[in-house]
Each structure stands twice: as structure tokens, then as C-alpha cells.
Design a protein around this nucleic acid. Structure first.
Lengths: 349, 349
DNA sequence: TTGTAGGCGTTATCAC
DNA sequence: GTGATAACGCCTACAA
């Protein structure tokens, strides 16, 4: 029902190819007589012609569409990246299809197989799969691909944080705050990011307790309950959480168990609140009455790096050598953390 | 390079049509001899056949893809909806393409025209366009469509909150907290949601000041600075913000201007902090040392309603009558608000 | 400068 | 039951 090249050709007494050439623009359309070009252009506008992108894609084998496959776009970390990637890709003429794996390998696999069938031109993936081999069982070898956040050995196009640097920074900050004993709340061990972070922290401090579970708030809550049951002399100076969701859960639970301490600043049942150390941002952390140190990744840079890794692959550019991008992070402390620092140095135990 | 129906036909000494029928499954494939069916199925699996969805789409005129066009997916409100919609659609066999308009009419228009060209089967839109007519200038009449959050007169498939109920609830809560004077921080007047909310609030209270700007944090910050310059007797009892971003900006600015009051609970330079009233969620609001009342929409219900409005349209179901869905919200107060309530009733001014 | 024709991979309409 | 054959809308040699 919408007009096609054929319709325009008929209307202007030309042929499909002529119309196609005119509408293609650029050099090709230069080689058409000004007269017919004008006629075609006019007719196209008059009839409200819109190219059928599926037909074009079938022919040219590209859809001008990129897929972003993450664990959950509701996580602010990913939604911010998603938003930036979308905007950037849009400027380059690409659209973005969004896929949640929900940390479910089955769904990840479905998408990994579905997307190429859809004619996706490339993808940005936060993988569950852990090896190059497993990945390429579902994705065609030459699919332009960028691995985000969880590097896979042997895949060059990847963007992630330097976990050593990241975690080191966090440990340094804790160390300067005289932390000796920590409790760890970790996401699933099979995800590199969580595993690596927990490992490194374990080397820096004496670990009095640990709790592992899905990287969700609930896990953080349960962890705090477990830690609270520890003997008084076993209480951690800090609780390290391997991502933001876990941290939020811990903070939620702290607020429930000692509302007065949390809100009033005085009258806490605990001597001093343990420091919460997390990776990625805790929303509104600056105003939270809990000492927090947070290792923050530069999200705009992350998003930008993804696109920069992807574009040359899409262009079929083989001379641009692609190397994994490792981004540095910075440690940010909130006001409650800074206050604690001051009072502590004023009156050392 | 990937195998096609033709390749399988050649391999199995059958024809494309037979292969197509077998692979179609269901009733069609029943009418094929078990022998050939087996052969075809085996070959398909062996060769790793994957249907080319663009080709199929060209033929069947459907892409099994839905577009979600919002102002900014980085806003938790939209990213949560996006996440839920994606999961729900995935279960129904659809993929989701994500588009940010960034509140820019030009970009909205681009997408409105681009998406149908891509063969999108339907769309969920948070519109900038304000009339049915303007919308259908860019979108084909029969495109399955759901309007989200900002109803457009004359379009039945829409999901939004009942602004009267929503805002009324907020005003009631403020009224019970003895609020008389308010300041308003509003998003752009041309967006119904912001306009309507500000209007209603204006009818309930004495408005001592108002500030309008883009629905971003920065606007909220500027607003607070402006309000702080008011005469002491003109200070508002509450600051109403027409969305969460604005509210976060105001809270940020409050923390900067009086850190002691915010963090310590005592020693505020102001008599009492004004209540912050916002629409949509403020992350971590329960722990923030600022009295907040928040009119919360039921996001899972919103997302679900979108999908339920969309599916019958996709199915070409004309007997299911579509009516606008208006969802109720609830007012939620944080702990600081509740504390304030108590102290106030204990020692009334 | 322009037209003809073939094909991208599917589905669908016919015949046999 | 099965196989030609014609679209779907577009791009692009190859001719003219």
C-alpha cells in the first residue's frame, strides 16, 4: 500500500533503476539528467515515498541495527550505558535493539542465536558465556562484536574496567580508614567481575565473613542479617559488595535494623557503622547517613569506547588494530565517610 | 553463506516449498510424508539452518519487533518500564528496539518516520507531539500504537496515571502535614504531565514561587537557589517537583547549601526543612535525611498495561474494544517525613 | 543517461 | 504429498 520504487517509476515514465539511482543520492544520482531527477524527486515527495528497509536489508545484507545484550537494563549502570550508546549510534545511522538476559544462560543463548537471524549488523554483549568457543557456537564468526564489562580471553574487542586498579583503589581507601576486618558480599562466583573483585579484596584484608548469591538487593539484605549474628569482636570494619545492587540491599537492611543510628547520627546500637564499599554507583550516596566508598567507573567513557570498538568492525576496517580497552576508575567517598574519617583521626581508639 | 531453504532442498532432493513447509511446523508440516520430513529436519539441523528473518519479514510484512520511544531510557522510571516491557514482549516472541527522543521534537519525528520504514510491527510511545493529527503525519494510520504516560486526545490505546488522583493524593498528604505555602519546580509547560501536575497543585496551595525548565537535575538546583533568596516569611513549607529528576536536583542543592542540617538532623540554618514532594520514585528516599513525599506509580502495572494494549492490535483483533487505561498511584512518605510529622504534632507552632 | 533482468530468502498459490 | 513459480521491494551489473 505505501508507494514503492515501481510506483514512482510508473508515475514518472521511468524505470525502477532510475528511480533507485536518483533516490540513492550522491555520485550515482549525479549521473542522471537534471530533468528526470527533478521529476522523480518531485513524484517521490508527492507520493510520500519511504524506502522499505527490510527489502533493502535483504539485498544489501545490512539492517543498520545493533543489539545491546545486558543482564538487566533496569540496572542504572546499564541503562545509562544503553542511553548513551543509543544516542551515539543514532548519530551514526544505527538503531538499537535491547535485550535482557536476566543473567539466565538460556535466554542469553536464545538472543545470541536470534539476533543474527534478524540481520543485526553487530552487537554489544555483557556475556554470561565465559569462553570464546562457547560464544561462537551461537554467533557467526564475523559478526562485529564488542564484549562489555566481562572480558573473555581471546576476544580483542572488549571494554571493561581494570579490576586490579579498581579494586586496589577501593582497598587503599579502606586501608587509610584503618579498616582491618572486612565482610564480603559477592555476586555469583561464575561471573568474572564478581569473582575477581572478591578475590582481590580477600588478599588485602582479613575476611571475617562472606556471603554469596544473585547480584540483587535481597542477597545484600540476607548478608547483613548473617553478619549481624557474628560475635561482637568479629564485627567487620567494612562490608565490601561486588556491585551496587548488593550494596543497596545491605544499606536497606542496616536502615531497618537500626533506624535511630541511621537517621539520627547518634544513638547507634553499634559502636560505629561499618563502611560500605561498593562497585558502581549508589544513587544519592552523598546524602546517605552511612559511610560509603564507591569505586566509580566512567560511564560515558565506557559507552563511548563500546561504540568506538564497534564502528571500525562495521565498516569492515581491518587495518585499525583492535585492542581490549581497560578503563580506570576512581574511588568516591560520601560525606558520612568523610565525617567518620575526621572524628576517627581526632579521637583514635 | 549461511544455508538457505534452497541449500537444504538440494541436499535432500526436495524443493524449497517442501522444505519451507516442513520447517514451518504445525498443521502444514503434518501433510508431508514422515520420510521426507525426517530427511529435511535432519539436514536442516546438520547444516545449522537459521531462517533469514529479513526475508521472511519482507514476505509476511512483519518483523516481530516493537519499538519503545521514550524521552530518555536513563531515567529509572523508563528503564524499569523498558526492562519489563522487553521481558514481556520476549515471551510473546517480539524483540524491542529502543529509542531516546531526548525531549527533542526533531529526533522524535525522525524516529516516528524511521521505525515504520524498518518494518516495526508496533510501537509504544511517550510522545512530545500533542495531537492525534500531528502524530499521524509521521506514522501510518494502522500502525499498532500505545501512548504511554502522556495521553493524546482521541487516541484510545493509552496507558497513563490518573493525574487528578495522583496529584490529589500528594496534596492531601501535604495538607495533613500542615503545608500552606508551596514552591513549584516544573518541567516544560508544553508537556501535559508537567503542566497538569503544576496546575492542580496550584489550586490546592498558596504558591510562593515557581521555577520552570527542562526536566533535569540542573533545573531543580537552580530552583532551590532561587527559592533560598526569598524573604524568610515567604519560605515555602514544601517544594513540589513535577518529576523525579527535578526533585533530585533540589535535594542535591539542599545538601550543598546546608550540609550540617542535612546530615546531622540538628543545627539546621533553616527552621525546618521544607518537604520535598515529587512524582515518581527518588532512589533511596527512605534513607535520605530530608522529608519526602512521593507519588508512586505502579511501574510493573504500567508496563503490563502497555503490552496488553498492544497485543490485540498486533493480532489484528478488532472485537476487543480498547479503552484508555488510567492507573492509580499511591503516596509514599519517607522516614524523615514521618519523624517531622511526629515532632510537629508533639509541639505545634 | 537510462532500461532490462536477476537475485537476496521467504511464503503462498497453483497445479500435478 | 510435492514441485514449479510468482511475488515481497530493493539494488546493481550489464546492456543499450
Amino acid at each position: 500500500m505505501p508507494p514503492t520504487l515501481n510506483d514512482i517509476a510508473r508515475e514518472t515514465n521511468t524505470s525502477v533503476s532510475t528511480v533507485s539511482r536518483v533516490l540513492a543520492g550522491g555520485t550515482v544520482s549525479q549521473r542522471i539528467s537534471t530533468a528526470t531527477r527533478g521529476r522523480v524527486l518531485a513524484a517521490a515527495k508527492a507520493m510520500g515515498y519511504r524506502p522499505n528497509l527490510m527489502a533493502r536489508g535483504l539485498r544489501t545484507r545490512q539492517s543498520k541495527t545493533i543489539a545491546l545484550l545486558v543482564s538487566d537494563i533496569a540496572n542504572p549502570f546499564f541503562s545509562q550505558i544503553g542511553s548513551l550508546v543509543e544516542q551515539s549510534l543514532h548519530r551514526h545511522g544505527y538503531s538499537l535493539v535491547l535485550c535482557n538476559s536476566g543473567e539466565d544462560p538460556a535466554i542469553e543463548q536464545q538472543y545470541l542465536e536470534l539476533l543474527p537471524q534478524k540481520g543485526i549488523d553487530g552487537m554489544i554483549v555483557v556475556p554470561l558465556v565465559r569462553t570464546r568457543k562457547a560464544l561462537y557456537e551461537h554467533v557467526p564468526e564475523r559478526m562485529p562484536l564488542v564484549i562489555l564489562d566481562r572480558p573473555i580471553p581471546g576476544i580483542a574487542a572488549s571494554v571493561s574496567s581494570d579490576e586490579e586498579q579498581l579494586t586496589g583503589l577501593l582497598c587503599d581507601t579502606l586501608g587509610r580508614a584503618l579498616v582491618r576486618n572486612v565482610a564480603i558480599v559477592a555476586g555469583p562466583h561464575h561471573i568474572v567481575t564478581h569473582r575477581r573483585r572478591a578475590e582481590i579484596v580477600g588478599k588485602c584484608f582479613h575476611v571475617v565473613a562472606r556471603h554469596e548469591g544473585p547480584a540483587q538487593r535481597e542477597t545484600g539484605r540476607q548478608a547483613l542479617l548473617k553478619f549481624d549474628a557474628l560475635a561482637p569482636d568479629q564485627q567487620p570494619d567494612a562490608i565490601v559488595c561486588t556491585n551496587n545492587h548488593l550494596g543497596q540491599g545491605v544499606i536497606d537492611a542496616m536502615a531497618q535494623t537500626e533506624p535511630s543510628g541511621i537517621l539520627g547520627g547518634a544513638g547507634a546500637t553499634r559502636g560505629t557503622l561499618p563502611i560500605i564499599a561498593v562497585f558502581d554507583e549508589i544513587p544519592m550516596m552523598h546524602l546517605l547517613p552511612v559511610p560509603i566508598v564507591c569505586s566509580m567507573q566512567d560511564i560515558p567513557m565506557l559507552a563511548d569506547a563500546c561504540v568506538r570498538q564497534l564502528l571500525p568492525q562495521l565498516a569492515g576496517d581491518t587495518k585499525t588494530k583492535i585492542e581490549p580497552i581497560l578503563l580506570e576508575s576512581r574511588a568516591v567517598t560520601n560525606r558520612a565517610f568523610q565525617v567518620r574519617q575526621k572524628t576517627q583521626s581526632a579521637a583514635p581508639a
